[in-house]
Design a protein around this nucleic acid. Sequence first.
DNA 1: GCCTTGACGGTAA
DNA 2: CTTACCGCCAAGG
Length: 113
Amino acid sequence: MAESDEKRNFFENVYEVVRQVPSGRVTTYGAIAAFLGAKRSARMVGWAMISSHAQAGIPAHRVINRNGVLTGKHFFGGPDAMQGLLEAEGVEVENDQVKDFDRLFWDPARELL
DNA sequence: GCCTTGACGGTAA
DNA sequence: CTTACCGCCAAGG
């Protein structure tokens, strides 16, 4: 029963980490996955975000891919919804790509730990 | 029950 | 430096 519970915990862990992301900061799927010990399963983090759509307090718009591109902007109900949210927090977005991504990158294993 | 797709990432060529 | 392919895990068809 441990394995099934851990799987569920993985999703819950993702929600918790994303929830700790401060405004004006962005993180990546790989960073979260690596923080959870599944650095090779960054895709699952993205899948968890889709499930997080039903959760509250999950700033999924702050979670993007390692390229700094708003890969899941289409899942926010609008092509510019995610970009608008980031810009509203002070994050400059250019062509669906976060500017100064390296400067705004929030690493859970570096700042949260 | 098997195959394909998917909010990714890293390494190889 | 850019492009291509494979790998991980889960869910939908």
